[in-house]
Design a protein around this nucleic acid. Structure first.
Lengths: 135, 135
DNA sequence: TATTACCCTACTTAATTGGTAGGGATTTCA
DNA sequence: TGAAATCCCTACCAATTAAGTAGGGTAATA
């Protein structure tokens, strides 16, 4: 299952991409328009900022804004930041690889074989979608 | 993340497929060879049987066995039985569809658009893999 | 009829999810 | 200059799920 965190994060990014200019948009506005708990969204936007996907401005007239062109924001990045590894098992993960405890031979493992294909197909989708493609 | 339940279930199915004949194999044997907690595996095999993927025989010399040719056992079925919906959000699920609470227009939703592609690509993999393909 | 092996229910422990509460710290504008 | 707006940060919490464990019941076979 996709977490609400990822879902809301994606919606917020989309919202910001839809806004014409690069003016900061307040959390409250995004939360209201996208039906998201404001405090929860706050923490999500914070992680997006910490990971270089958003910029922020404090004080009156402040808010969050995209710091890249939506075409340059790829879903691989967004998914990894919000949802974590794209692979369903660590032993097929590119960025979070870990050997299986119980599995003596990775090459022989049926789960490994299947999940490798699933990872590749998901990566394919994420690589071919930028934020701009989702508008 | 793939649950251990699914992982172990897949390994057990693979194990049974590798066995030449159609003789019942005991839970204890599968558990030992695949490094799985026996009691946990027991409950997994039970759900596989309840869902028509395995047959069982009680008493001495009993155990579990495949009731179909591995070529006829598709990963779509296995994944749905063990892991649940293939889609990452209910609003793009074929077998477990549910409307999003917060989303006014499904067609306009960026999450929907992305997850639809992810579902299709995963389905593609699962449809193209039978148990026989994983040996 | 004793043993083997599946069948079933209930409980437990730890981690994660999806929040909520509450108060900073900083910037802007009047 | 100071008040209001707004982001920033930490801590806590309730519900759910995952991954088992425990313990016995039931059916089949030798």
């Amino acid at each position: 299952m996709l977490s609400k965190k990822t879902k809301y994060g994606l919606k917020a990014l989309t919202y910001l991409a839809k806004v014409e200019g690069r003016e900061p948009v307040q959390i409250a506005e995004i939360a209201k328009c996208e039906n998201i708990s404001q405090k929860f969204l706050e923490s999500i936007l914070l992680t997006l900022r910490r990971n270089g996907l958003l910029g922020s401005k404090k004080g009156k007239g402040g808010g969050y804004y995209l710091i890249k062109d939506p075409k340059e924001i790829h879903m691989t990045t967004v998914m990894r930041v919000l949802e974590g590894p794209i692979a369903m098992v660590p032993c097929v993960s590119l960025n979070f690889y870990e050997k299986c405890e119980d599995c003596p031979d990775e090459e022989e493992c049926s789960v490994h074989k299947l999940m490798l294909q699933v990872r590749d197909s998901a990566l394919d989708v994420y690589r071919n979608n930028s934020l701009a493609d989702l508008l």
